[in-house]
Design a binder for these strands. Sequence first.
DNA 1: GCCAACGTTGGC
DNA 2: GCCAACGTTGGC
Length: 145
Amino acid sequence: MKYWLFKSEPFKWSWEQQKAKGDVGEEWDGIRNYQARNNMRAMKIGDRGFFYHSNEGLDVVGVIEICAESAPDSTTDDDRWDCVHVRALCDIPNPVTLKEVKANPKLADMALVTSMRLSVQPVTKDEWIEVCRMGGLNGKTLEPL
DNA sequence: GCCAACGTTGGC
DNA sequence: GCCAACGTTGGC
């Protein structure tokens, strides 16, 4: 299982909206960046991701799961762009802010810090465990629920 | 709302 | 294939 982080501006697509979709999940559309797309192409069903609120909030608020592998993005006819589907798994009890991530030496190499503008990014297992710990999940999202 | 960082586009 | 212009992201 691999780990990822998805950024979304809450006024465009919020964690509340994602949760409202339930287990059906939703297409992660609108990505027009090759690196972000390549990350999505590498995802497998069951991979986990953090849901991060950018622009407003600036915090990791939830955990999602990949529920459909990369397929053409329905919002464009341009066949360069495809995307996965994700569904909400659980809230992060204590949302982890960007500030806290930056202040934690263990997370100094996180793409959230080093590749500020990348909207879909990989997370290492160690980073995943650390952010879960900070968020009050104690690693319980590591394995299939 | 500003602007730095950075990705993309297109002329040459 | 270089690079200037332009557009977008996202923290502040």
